[in-house]
Design a protein around this nucleic acid. Structure first.
Lengths: 225, 225
DNA sequence: CATAGACAATAGTATTGCTATCATTAATGA
DNA sequence: TCATTAATGATAGCAATACTATTGTCTATG
């Protein structure tokens, strides 16, 4: 196990939550609460009550709850990129690496990194159901300029490079990368809540989802079309 | 051109907006406003001011703005299914039908249906950027029980049937259907606002997106994996 | 020991989301 | 034609949300 210090873009916060007990508590309990009640009904007031501090104190760390969500989800993507490097850095076979990536996307790889105050299972759930809300807004462009999506874009870029080591001529490496990542989350969510949109059996979701995703990746990468 | 009367699930509204001038005005201007300012900063108060009525009157039609968005987006999916039937009903070749579907998804087919008070281009934009918000909530399950996603699920189901006429043995027809639909919207949005997540040239987005989508559909349907 | 920084405590404001009441007008039909 | 009902307008109000500002205490550091 390795200790990681994930440093995120200072645009995401007013005061770095990693640098204080209260800050770490804010992160920890935000994850719990957003997971439990959903992002829409999560408020700073409720959070403050939950961790026995005041609304004003939370506002010293984050401009608003949207930024807090950004912080959490950026943490996730950064951490994913660490893991991606960890698993694909040494292995030279792109097929194996693509399969490792897919296991990573469905959250089935052993995690090598420690992070005391973050519940990763809940974090994964939050990312699955809330991450779209970060960019589907009227202020995407400003947020993008402020580098709020950098970790996500970086990860997708690395995935697209992996695709190109598998097939140097592939023309849709970036689109396939982002589609694969999005699809992993969406199909998992659908399998759970809107199962008629999928072909997966609830008992073996992850296995079947992985086979769908690798079917997708390799079919497309090998395609004659 | 044909006149259509799209009748939607009464769970979506309190009073049917199609049945009155004010109701149709609410729909019309909601589409305008959500398109222009985004769903988060759209409020019933602003809408009321815009169409010279009162907040209370709007509440007589829709329980809240989330339901209004549901109504609008369900209208879209129902209309899409009409068009899908229209274009694929007579042609017998599944390849042609899949290509027609893809043109439909990127909004490039001539529309056969009239609807005076609905700006379809803006509607398409809204669906692209806001539709995920309908199901990524903590109340998906209740909403699903109230049949709020039926038009979307119906369309996906018909698409999956089309895939099975092309390849009767294909195991992922439903997942491919929902993935294709979602991907069409996401990639279009990305191409516009987060282009590094795609491989498309802004000048020819639709052409290239269509080729990506048909590459995806046929690669997967013909796959050996 | 002074001082700066972190936080708690409290208060206050504008906006949002929603409900209730009552008056006015338009449509329907007895 | 009158009575009734439905639809809307006008207005009020309330609880929750999303913030901002001020003041005081405590604590670590220099």
């Amino acid at each position: 196990m390795m200790e990681i210090q994930i440093r995120l873009n200072p645009n995401l916060y007013i005061k770095d939550p990693e640098q204080s007990e209260l800050g770490r508590n804010i992160i920890k309990h935000s994850i719990e609460m957003i997971h439990d009640v959903g992002f829409e009904s999560f408020t700073f007031k409720k959070l403050a009550a939950n961790i026995n501090t005041t609304e004003a104190s939370v506002y010293r760390y984050f401009e608003n709850k949207h930024r807090l969500l950004s912080y959490i989800i950026n943490w996730y993507w950064t951490w994913m990129e660490y893991q991606f490097s960890f698993y694909t850095g040494t292995v030279k076979d792109p097929v194996q690496n693509i399969n490792a990536l897919i296991s990573l996307l469905v959250f089935e790889l052993d995690d090598q990194f420690i992070s005391a105050h973050i519940n990763k299972d809940k974090l994964y759930n939050i990312v699955t159901s809330e991450s779209n809300k970060l960019y589907f807004t009227h202020h995407v462009e400003e947020d993008n300029k402020a580098r709020m999506f950098k970790p996500y874009k970086d990860l997708c870029h690395r995935i697209s490079q992996l695709f190109n080591t598998y097939n140097a001529k592939y023309r849709f490496a970036h689109s396939l990368a982002s589609t694969l990542v999005e699809t992993a989350h969406h199909q998992l969510f659908f399998a759970h809540y809107l199962p008629s949109l999928t072909d997966f059996d609830k008992r073996k979701i992850k296995t079947e989802l992985k086979s769908f995703l690798s079917h997708m990746a390799f079919s497309m990468l090998d395609s004659k079309y």
